[in-house]
Amino acid sequence: MYGSIRHQIRIARSADDVWALAGDPTKLHTWFPGIVDCTVDGTTRVITTGAGLPMPEQILQCDATQRRFQYRITAPIFRDHRGTIDVIELGPDECLVVYSTDCDPRTMALVIGGGSAGALAELKRQMEQEQH
């Protein structure tokens, strides 16, 4: 059974600035609390959670024009997963970041989605702190 969770946050920085961090697949662990490491090899990324779990992912899209990053967790516990990060320009110094998790089993959508809410808060903190 699928579950779909979406979180979003406004950040007082330009979309380009935020995309430079959020769209970089090698830097996820710097703004996603609970991910302690990530390595990228081509379209394969492996993240390691704070509990020590390695989770392999397939990068589906990293589109700097749309500022959209999409990936799929391929760990066996997931029947299907798609994570989408959109950075949407609201003005010259403001953007909206939307982090969507669509997932089967649906329970994992709550788990990953809960993590992504914290990640957006941390992304905002870093980007706005850096600004000042």
């Binding site: 609390p33 609970g34 959670t49 704070g50 509990a51 779990l53 329970t107 788990v111 809960g114 993590g115």
Partner: peptide, 17 residues
């Protein structure tokens, strides 16, 4: 704090670990 915590984000779950 939640038990299902693969990201180890919650202090409650960190002590035993």
């Amino acid at each position: 704090e939640p038990f299902l915590d693969p990201f180890a984000r919650f202090a409650e779950n960190g002590f035993a670990r």
